[in-house]
């Protein structure tokens, strides 16, 4: 195994985490990572050895994600609403999720892909604003407003589901 491939291999866990936060479903997320790895292999010369392949790989994967979301959206505005806790019929079986984790994962899926990507990039993946703006290909101001709106929207959704839960308890 050459050095470049070894360096890419060590980034796979982080790529999988980012993909999982974008798509939720484990197999779909791994499909995205696989597409990313294949694209990276074709463009191996674009990456300068000596620097971490992380930003390069995240950029490739983000483009794949956004391109495909646009294709999906062209069919019509199909957004997904968050599920109420009791409605989740087929939560990924491969992972034991606490209710809190499941709620926040569902809420994350319900916010727009652009906001989701910006928020995850900074809040989970720990990129700086400058790095994240660069990877996502947007000005820093746009990135900041996506993060702010994304956080607000996420909190609103979590408040909603907490309210629904308390209403249910009162009704009993």
């Amino acid at each position: 195994m050459d050095d470049k491939k070894a360096a890419i291999l060590s980034e796979i866990p982080r790529l999988r985490r980012y993909a999982r936060s974008l798509l939720r479903d484990r197999d779909s997320a791994d499909d995205l990572v696989q597409d990313c790895l294949e694209r990276a292999l074709m463009r191996l010369d674009n990456w300068q050895t000596g620097e971490s392949p992380r930003r390069w790989l995240f950029t490739i994967m983000h483009h794949l994600f956004i391109d495909q979301m646009r294709k999906v959206n062209r069919r019509g505005e199909a957004a997904i609403l968050p599920l109420e806790a009791g409605e989740a019929q087929a939560a990924p079986a491969d992972q034991v999720e606490t209710i809190a984790s499941r709620e926040i994962m569902d809420a994350l899926q319900a916010i727009s892909p652009d906001r989701r990507a910006a928020l995850v990039m900074v809040a989970i993946e720990g990129f700086s604003y400058a790095e994240a703006a660069n990877i996502l290909g947007v000005p820093a101001g746009t990135l900041m407003s996506r993060i702010a709106r994304g956080r607000e929207e996420l909190r609103g959704l979590l408040d909603d589901s907490a309210r629904r839960r308390s209403i249910r308890i009162v009704e009993k």
Binding site: L23, R24, D25, S28, E38, Q68, K71, P82
Partner: peptide, 21 residues
Amino acid sequence: WRSRWWLSAAAAVVLAVGGLS
């Protein structure tokens, strides 16, 4: 399996409710 991940987003099913089946 390759390149199918986005179909699930298109179906708007898998992410929210549908499982693998």
